[in-house]
């Protein structure tokens, strides 16, 4: 009786497990299949087996490594800025303020906007002829072009990311602050600690696991950057703002080389897996998981 009761639980999860496996395993296996063939639109029904040639082509492709480096740099810049800003906003709003709920609701609005729409909006906002931002800047005597070269384009992409995703960090940090126990704060106040010491020695250590978790999540999310560069800069000037996902998209959908695109995707998967493993080890050390 106990044996059959033990087995039945596996049958009960099968209806959801099977489709899930199909939707994840099948594309993965197909990606490996594509990656070891020369397969394009024209050779789709009779591909040529090429072994590891596609992987070698990716490994020696300067533009691929540039895009990986650029994406890592981008993620490494936006993540700490968003964490710091999000935490600051959470601390500022973690008190009794009139209209706090309305302010929080408005702050979360960028999260409801699709990234592609956000990119279109920002491209218009920063347009030198019709954009609101350059208009205001010119009014105060500042003449700046937001897309004139790599540096300007890069900063504009960063601003867009911060505007859209800082609210995500904010809401996580805010929830964390709300859930913190009161007793350490009361004890600190009794001992005469000022706000700086309280933040440094109580708030930050208690929030550290949560902040580390959201940092890893944001970093991995920023690494998947596609919409902003595709719409705002096209990966240019040249290919200077081409991210790894945009590179893969180009290879697969514009050049139509499915084999090379699959190999690129798998390469990126392994890079991400290594990064995630390192992240998980850090999280494990601070006892989050």
């Amino acid at each position: 009786m106990r044996g059959s009761k033990g087995r039945i639980k596996y049958f009960l999860i099968l209806p959801s497990l099977l489709p899930l496996l199909f939707l994840t395993l099948y594309p993965t296996i197909f990606a490996y299949y594509l990656s070891i063939h020369k397969i394009t639109i024209r050779t789709f029904h009779n591909p040529e087996f090429t072994g590891v040639t596609n992987f070698i082509n990716v490994a020696v492709n300067y533009q691929f490594w540039y895009s990986v480096g650029f994406t890592a740099l981008y993620s490494a810049i936006v993540t700490p800025i968003e964490i710091a800003l999000g935490l600051l906003l959470a601390i500022l709003l973690n008190r009794e303020i009139y209209g706090r709920r309305i302010i929080i609701t408005l702050m979360l609005t960028p999260l409801a906007i699709a990234p592609s729409l956000m990119a279109i909006m920002m491209k218009l906002m920063f347009n030198e002829f019709v954009g609101l931002v350059p208009y205001i800047l010119r009014y105060i005597g500042v003449n700046h072009n937001f897309f004139r070269d790599f540096n300007s384009s890069f900063i504009t992409l960063i601003i867009t990311d911060i505007l859209q995703w800082t609210p995500f960090v904010f809401i996580i940090a805010y929830s964390g602050l709300q859930a913190l126990p009161r007793e350490p704060y009361e004890a600190a106040l009794i001992d005469g600690a000022d706000s700086k010491r309280i933040f440094r020695h109580i708030t930050l250590p208690l929030l550290k696991p949560l902040l580390l978790l959201v940092s890893v999540l944001r970093f991995m999310d920023a690494y998947k950057l596609f919409e902003y560069v595709h719409i705002m800069t096209g990966g240019g000037p040249g290919f200077s703002t081409t991210t790894s996902t945009l590179f893969t998209y180009r290879v697969g959908f514009i050049h139509g080389d499915f084999g090379l695109a699959a190999a690129t995707t798998l390469f990126l998967f392994y890079i991400t897996m290594v990064s995630a493993t390192i992240g998980l080890r850090i999280l494990n050390k601070v006892r989050i998981i």
Binding site: F129, V130, F146, S153, M232, G234, G236
Partner: peptide
């Protein structure tokens, strides 16, 4: 225009 480095059809028309 300096920003024309990101222009495509729509922006050029604008």
């Amino acid at each position: 225009p300096p920003d024309s480095i990101t222009y495509e059809y729509g922006e050029a028309n604008a």
